[in-house]
Write a protein that binds this DNA or RNA. Structure first.
Lengths: 335, 335
DNA sequence: ATGAAAGCGCTAACAC
DNA sequence: GTGTTAGCGCTTTCAT
């Protein structure tokens, strides 16, 4: 980077002190209109840009947010990033993105990096592998505000923004039952994730409402396309195959559709399927997927807004906030 | 953020000067093994972390890369970010992400922000609206290395990383012709983008090879799902409807599939379709989409590697590099 | 082998 | 209304 114009350059050229220049630039009331004008004119002429790093050092702030996220390529997360970036942009913050790639080890590194980079606050959705949260506790110990979203934990004293997993799941399964499903399988996320528990619980209660007995044989851990396709393929061949599926995300749901087709089962004739996410793909697959909209963009916005609010507060009597983002059943063709 | 341990704290506790501590920490040969050990031990004990911002100020480097990109939600771009982040991570750089949302105005702001944040280098894929590049020229004038990817321009003296648009398009259209298509429509990107020109040109030459006359009535500007669906709907109703489609991206291709189905046309019986991108959705839609793989992840990696190389060089006799990423036809069911 | 001091660019408390 | 000075945390000449 080329040597940049500094206030010293301006001060010398104008035969005044750096402090006067500094004050003129920031419209300090003491400065005479004449000098102010002269300084600003020359600054504009020379293309002066304040050195953010010097400012950072002085103020001990970076106006930068850290984002630790499992994988950008997943539609839901990219929608969230979109929302986060939008709010950050409007408030003149920048966002540093760190992917954990669902690896605990890398996530620990990310937490280090975030600390090293002296970001003002951090947004986190942790990896599936993560069961120990001490790397995040370290951030909190350093009094860096942390907001968790989607993948959250109660082990830490921090704000949380999550989808209404229970409600979304309830709506989904209720819909399947109303479509006549009797044997509804659930493809679940790991149960150490709150969202995994919440969605299972919504599934459970929707059955309960319709007096359908809960059967743990119908619960599977399957939250990726590959694993879901494989498991669906297996269980759809059984004589007592499920007639409905509620999956933890859209990729899993689409995998079930594929498996059903492979086996010449009609969707939604023989098998009804509801996903969770409302990704772009949900509207593209065939049949189009009935799913629960998670409003990732709004979730990202909300998480970022809460973080920015925390940054403003600066007070110590801290009471973690939990924000639940609404969900909505989007009925398409698959159920 | 809590007050952090500084080198001064260590120096005072150990009754030595800050310079000695600094040297001990960075294994300066002059320092006696004894002091070195003492310093390192205490540093570890106190959880000392060098203040990156102070380092930044001194070195005039931030070990941060700026990324200006149209929209994160698009699969291709998220794959690219993934590749970029991977290389940055391995080389201990952080990435600041700025979305232009396809808006020229916002992109100009992004370029400002990148400058303000004093990033060491910038990766850019510009918006569809962008026809004036002076905001990027400003970066170059400031001697900030800039690497353009996917959406590039020859108006600027800068490195470029692009897909092999011509070759990919040629393969796609050649495939359609071999499948028996006679009237092949092309849904194109804006022609001021090099990739738009390149793909059109590949389309053109594939026709030429098979002695099929080029017909400009078959060229449409349609690079979004909505516009493509609408146009496909219209032209597929004509008596002289195309029997093949080559679209500039997968979303457009899938839109054509949808439109064909709406009109009860068989894909690939009545209409053959080839996309460009190989997004996740290409493998999910029905029929599964034949498309050109752009290797977004590799493209991102390559772009970032070139940028890091530039950062190391620091020499002034600069010769822009143009890297072309291979493309590959992925044959599925739609053609 | 270690310390003192200057300086990266900026702001602000304290002069006058 | 403007200048002087100190300091944010660190590295690095230059002394000793």
């Amino acid at each position: 980077m080329k040597r940049q114009i500094t206030i010293k350059d301006i001060a010398i050229k104008l035969g005044m002190s750096t402090s006067t220049v500094s004050r003129a630039l920031r419209d300090h009331p003491d400065i005479s209109p004449k000098t102010r004008a002269a300084v600003k004119e020359l600054a504009a002429l020379l293309g002066y840009r304040p050195n953010r790093i010097a400012l950072n050092l002085r103020s001990n702030e970076t106006r930068t947010l850290g984002l630790i996220i499992p994988e950008i390529e997943h539609y839901f997360f990219s929608a969230i990033i979109n929302g986060i970036e939008e709010i950050a942009y409007k408030n003149d913050y920048s966002v540093m993105v760190f992917q954990s790639n669902e690896s605990y080890k890398r996530e620990v590194n990310n937490a280090q990096a975030v600390l090293t980079n002296r970001v003002d606050g951090v947004l986190v959705s942790f990896s599936k592998e993560t069961k120990d949260f001490s790397h995040f506790q370290k951030l909190i110990d350093n009094e860096i505000p942390v907001v968790f979203f989607d993948r959250v934990t109660d082990e830490l004293q921090a704000d949380q923004v999550v989808s209404d997993d229970y409600q979304g799941a309830f709506l989904a399964v209720n819909h399947l039952i109303e479509k006549g499903c009797k044997r509804i399988a659930h493809f679940a996320a790991p149960q150490h994730l709150a969202l995994g528990k919440g969605r299972l619980s919504g599934y459970h209660d929707a059955l309960l409402k319709h007096s359908i007995p809960f059967n743990s044989d119908l619960i599977f851990h399957a939250d990726t396309f590959e694993s879901s396709r494989k498991i669906a393929h297996t269980i759809l061949k059984r004589p007592d195959r499920p007639d409905g599926f509620f999956t933890v995300n859209d990729m899993s749901a689409i995998a079930v559709i594929k498996a059903a087709k492979d086996l010449n089962l009609k969707v939604p004739g023989d098998v009804h399927i509801v996903g969770f996410e409302n990704s772009r793909s949900a509207a593209l697959c065939e049949p189009e997927l009935t799913t629960v909209d998670q409003f990732g963009y709004d979730l990202g916005r909300e998480a970022c807004q809460i973080l920015l609010r925390r940054l403003k507060e600066k007070n110590s009597n801290f009471k973690p906030e939990k924000k639940v983002i609404r969900t909505k059943l989007v009925v398409r063709a698959s159920a």
